[in-house]
Write a protein that binds this DNA or RNA. Sequence first.
DNA 1: TGAATACTTAAGTATATGCTTCAGTATTTA
DNA 2: TAAATACTGAAGCATATACTTAAGTATTCA
Lengths: 102, 102
Amino acid sequence: MDADGVLQALGDATRRAMVDRLSRGPVSVSQLAERLGITLTAVGQHLAILEACGLAVTEKVGRVRTCRMGSAGLDALERWVREHRSEWERRADRLGELLEGE
Amino acid sequence: MDADGVLQALGDATRRAMVDRLSRGPVSVSQLAERLGITLTAVGQHLAILEACGLAVTEKVGRVRTCRMGSAGLDALERWVREHRSEWERRADRLGELLEGE
DNA sequence: TGAATACTTAAGTATATGCTTCAGTATTTA
DNA sequence: TAAATACTGAAGCATATACTTAAGTATTCA
């Protein structure tokens, strides 16, 4: 899973609301739609994006699709943060050493 | 700094490229514009967004504005990840205990 | 002091995308 | 088996926003 897709997905407020909800446990497409005040179709579209980047996992049983949080998306995001922070902090450290050396 | 703003900001590929660059050290607006192949104006607009959410800090000295990475943005983002992951993992743990109890 | 540099601001354009409706399909219930 | 439920897919619309040009301002250089 690449962080680009995750960040692109989480750029949208509705999808963030969906992830908020998923982090508290599984839900059906209908339940998401009702909570967000949008159509089932819209939820389906967002869900496809969340699944593609590993933020959600879904499974259809009978006529109802159950949606859960996916670990891969959060993993990728955390990795992205660490990489960007560390590069920048390494620089900050070198600057600190430089100043101490004076 | 709220994670919403940070995620909204990082939803855009150009701004992600800017943050990539900033994480490797300070740059001027012109240098960013050249690297990204867009106008100074466009860079300025993105920069305002990155500053507002704490992903960038800028300082104008003479006629050149120098842009650096901001810590607040990454902090907020890491917090967001931890909160969403932990809630979901607590649930997974409870499920695990439940299954063990059978 | 005049020219060049490095932005800044205002205003317009063009496209991406979030959402809708409408018309299906598959599953459950009465 | 008929009606209701829970989605799915195709197609269109409408708005947000990323980018541009054009016209400034402030600073440095020759």
